[in-house]
Design a protein around this nucleic acid. Sequence first.
DNA 1: ATTATATATAAGCGTTCACTTATATGTCAA
DNA 2: TTGACATATAAGTGAACGCTTATATATAAT
Lengths: 127, 127
Amino acid sequence: MITAPDLPVFRAVADPTRRAILDLLMAGERAVNDLLKPFRMTQPAISQHLRVLREAGLVTERRDGRRRIYKLEAAPLRSVHEWAAHYERFWTDKLTTLGDYLDEMPDEPAKKQATSKRTKKRSTSKH
Amino acid sequence: MITAPDLPVFRAVADPTRRAILDLLMAGERAVNDLLKPFRMTQPAISQHLRVLREAGLVTERRDGRRRIYKLEAAPLRSVHEWAAHYERFWTDKLTTLGDYLDEMPDEPAKKQATSKRTKKRSTSKH
DNA sequence: ATTATATATAAGCGTTCACTTATATGTCAA
DNA sequence: TTGACATATAAGTGAACGCTTATATATAAT
């Protein structure tokens, strides 16, 4: 029974506005007002996005007078990067022939029955 | 004015069940029934998740008799991988001293006023 | 032909989302 | 001390989400 963990960073990063905010923060720390300017959106909307990012550990906040300075914390993005990296083999293998591709499959419960001529050549290639 | 593109792959991948499905498909093609088994969820729920994945280009479907065989298409995950890679510098720099870290910032409109002693030492050390 | 199997689609439902307007809180300026 | 400024929080709203049950569609088995 699969119960996949719900890493909040995936949800945080799913929204294009939040990705744009992270992008802005790559250029350096920013006050909310600065982050707000590039968007056609109200200030509370941005503050709410910042909260989601904060709860995902993607930004930290520092007070400076009446302003709040937000700083990028990229560490959680490393999880995303590494997660995607697990699939690297499957997008590079796109240049391989179909035959070789299938032969590298660990197992195939979803094989066609007797419609494939390739079957004869496959002698339980699991080891 | 920022209008970030809403890549559907980010949304598709935000759900833990869908990530688990992609994980299953790494082991090879699977019919819906096989994909369904590991979850405590009804068949339509899985079919709906598969639709989201299909519309994001993350899986393709092939008919085999009365079954539908789903296959992983990892190409869109490359975008995710590359997007996260842009931030690599920011999580590796975590071992650098704070001073060097700040000195590499392109600009900082969110700097404190006169409260930081570091300011004097900063002579645009970008090369 | 009838029935069973495999899957998709439709409709409904409670929850979450991304926003808005309104208001509260804290700080600086006059 | 009063008002402007910077930001957060609360409350409301419509749309989207993730799920369910019910049903449609297509193929296979009897």
